[in-house]
Deep mutational scan, measured.
Amino acid sequence: MQNSHSGVNQLGGVFVNGRPLPDSTRQKIVELAHSGARPCDISRILQVSNGCVSKILGRYYETGSIRPRAIGGSKPRVATPEVVSKIAQYKRECPSIFAWEIRDRLLSEGVCTNDNIPSVSSINRVLRNLASEKQQMGADGMYDKLRMLNGQTGSWGTRPGWYPGTSVPGQPTQDGCQQQEGGGENTNSISSNGEDSDEAQMRLQLKRKLQRNRTSFTQEQIEALEKEFERTHYPDVFARERLAAKIDLPEARIQVWFSNRRAKWRREEKLRNQRRQASNTPSHIPISSSFSTSVYQPIPQPTTPVSSFTSGSMLGRTDTALTNTYSALPPMPSFTMANNLPMQPPVPSQTSSYSCMLPTSPSVNGRSYDTYTPPHMQTHMNSQPMGTSGTTSTGLISPGVSVPVQVPGSEPDMSQYWPRLQ
């Protein structure tokens, strides 16, 4: 039975679970980093996980050691009161100082060594604690504590007292930064006198190289990059290397530039699409467009005044059976039934097929058609009795279509119309 579990990581490298990497692998990681390889490249070359490479390099940059820390136990506290007071002093002298600059000053002034120097995250935590204590304490208590930490007896009751030896409130920041720059020169002199001055200088240079600022491109470089971006948004590694040799930039910087440029292009394309949609959409909808001609068919113009009344309900007709019959029939052209047409008796099958359309009241044959006459024609229609054979009435077949029909004066039988409509 094995005491430890061995495995293979996602890159194909072998590791022992819970145990640190061998010293030979750690040394190779540092050597590759000094030669300029990126952590992701080191991870692929040595088949070590990216997190492990970053952790080893980060500890090497901070402490200069590649040895693993002790497994188990607690780390001794490195942010001692003396170190905290120095950090507060540096922050007062130059409020814009960075944590890694404070760390360098602690090393250069001999406050800490490589073994007990606090990390950048520890210094940031100390600065946050100082800021929170400043908010919790009152103004007087804060000034007393700062005077105690600074070891001075001057008056701290006013704002300019934060910067000793100065009279203009805006000047101390520059003086403090100048003092810090002077301390940086002392850093070089002190570290050069040490035993491991060369190694420390190499480590600091490598650290500065990794902690780079934003790349500033010249106009020629920007023009070359934009020209390549117009050709393709995704250049391959050969195109990037050719462009890197042409404009004297690292291939990694060119790759990052193209990634950022593609993101910018997507944002601009989104804005262009929004403007295009806004320009195509009308600002207001016309009133006429809300009524579609496919839904509402136009009603033909009436030929006679009587045809303006298109349904039985508008003429005072309360018989719903006839109203439904007229509205359900398709529109037909106007025609006239003459008196000489043969009077065919209704076929029983045809009569039964339209039995649902006729009223059940037996008085329908005896009703006159003056009910369908509009009010303004009552006088004219009353002067001509319906009993004469020459009287013409208008029957409504569908809305908007008038059918003048000659009705025999002897017997106005409704059943004569249905064979004609089939």
Rank of each mutant, 00 (worst) to 15 (best):
H34L: 14
I66P: 05
W100A: 07
E62R: 15
L127K: 15
N9A: 04
D140E: 09
G12E: 03
Q89I: 14
S54Q: 00
L146V: 13
S121K: 05
F15N: 02
C112L: 05
K134Y: 08
Q89R: 14
Q135I: 11
D140S: 12
Q136L: 10
L11C: 06
R59Y: 00
N114T: 13
R26Y: 01
G58Y: 14
A79N: 14
Y60R: 02
S132F: 10
N50M: 10
G58D: 10
Y143M: 13
I42G: 01
H34F: 10
Q47Y: 07
E133I: 10
S119T: 00
G13M: 01
P81A: 08
C40F: 02
L146C: 11
I42M: 01
S108A: 12
K145S: 14
E133V: 09
R92Y: 15
K55V: 07
C112V: 13
C94Q: 12
C52V: 06
D140T: 14
R19I: 05
S96C: 06
R44H: 07
V14H: 15
I42W: 00
L46A: 04
S24E: 10
V53Q: 00
A33T: 08
Y61I: 09
L21F: 03
K91Y: 03
A139R: 13
E109V: 08
S35A: 14
G12Q: 02
R26C: 02
I117K: 15
Y61K: 15
K134C: 14
Y60I: 07
I42L: 02
S96Q: 08
C112N: 07
C112G: 06
M142G: 14
S65Y: 01
R67S: 09
A70Y: 06
K134W: 08
L11P: 02
G13T: 01
Y90E: 07
Q135L: 11
S54P: 00
S74D: 01
T80D: 01
V30M: 05
C40P: 04
Y61T: 07
V53S: 02
W100S: 07
Q89N: 14
R26Q: 02
D140Q: 12
R92D: 11
C40M: 06
L57T: 02
L46F: 04
P68V: 00
L46S: 01
G12H: 02
R92Q: 14
G36M: 04
K86T: 09
C52K: 00
G13P: 01
M148Q: 14
Q27Y: 12
K75L: 05
G7D: 08
S6G: 10
R125F: 06
V83S: 05
P68Y: 03
V53G: 01
V120I: 08
S35F: 14
H34P: 03
R69D: 03
N17I: 15
R105S: 10
I97Q: 15
G13H: 02
Y60S: 03
L127M: 04
G64N: 04
R92S: 12
N17K: 15
L107T: 15
E31H: 07
E93M: 11
F98S: 05
G58T: 15
S65N: 06
V8N: 05
P76I: 06
G18W: 02
F98M: 04
I97G: 14
P118A: 08
L127H: 15
V14P: 08
R44W: 07
Q10R: 13
Q27C: 14
T80Y: 04
C112M: 03
F15C: 03
L127S: 07
E62A: 15
Q135R: 12
M142E: 13
R105A: 09
R67A: 15
D140H: 09
K134R: 10
I123M: 03
A131D: 07
Y143R: 14
R77M: 04
D23N: 10
A79L: 13
R44V: 06
P118R: 00
D104W: 14
G72Q: 05
S85W: 09
E82R: 13
I87C: 07
E93A: 08
N17R: 15
I29A: 01
S74V: 01
G110T: 14
R128Q: 00
I102W: 03
Q10W: 04
F98L: 06
S4D: 10
A37T: 11
S49C: 01
Q89M: 09
S96G: 09
N116H: 12
N3V: 13
V8S: 04
G7M: 12
N3D: 09
R69E: 06
V30T: 05
W100M: 06
R105C: 12
C52D: 02
P76Q: 01
G36R: 07
V8P: 04
P22H: 05
G12F: 04
S6L: 15
R59P: 02
L127C: 11
Y90W: 11
V83E: 01
G73Q: 01
P76T: 04
K55R: 00
V78T: 00
G51L: 05
N150R: 11
R59T: 05
G12S: 03
R147C: 14
K91W: 02
S49K: 01
Y143K: 10
C94R: 15
N150W: 07
V78F: 04
V126E: 00
S132Y: 11
E109F: 13
N150M: 07
P95S: 10
S96P: 06
Y90N: 05
V30L: 06
V78A: 02
I102M: 14
R103D: 04
V48G: 01
H34M: 13
V53W: 05
A37R: 13
L46C: 07
I97T: 11
E62H: 09
R59V: 07
S6Y: 15
K134P: 10
G51M: 03
S43D: 01
C94D: 09
S119K: 04
R69I: 03
V16L: 13
E133G: 10
N124I: 00
V78R: 06
V8G: 04
L107I: 08
V14E: 06
G7N: 13
S24Q: 13
P81Q: 08
D140A: 13
P76C: 07
I87V: 06
V30C: 05
L32A: 05
A131S: 08
A139W: 13
G36Y: 04
E109D: 09
P68N: 05
R69W: 06
A99I: 03
N17M: 15
S108I: 12
L57S: 03
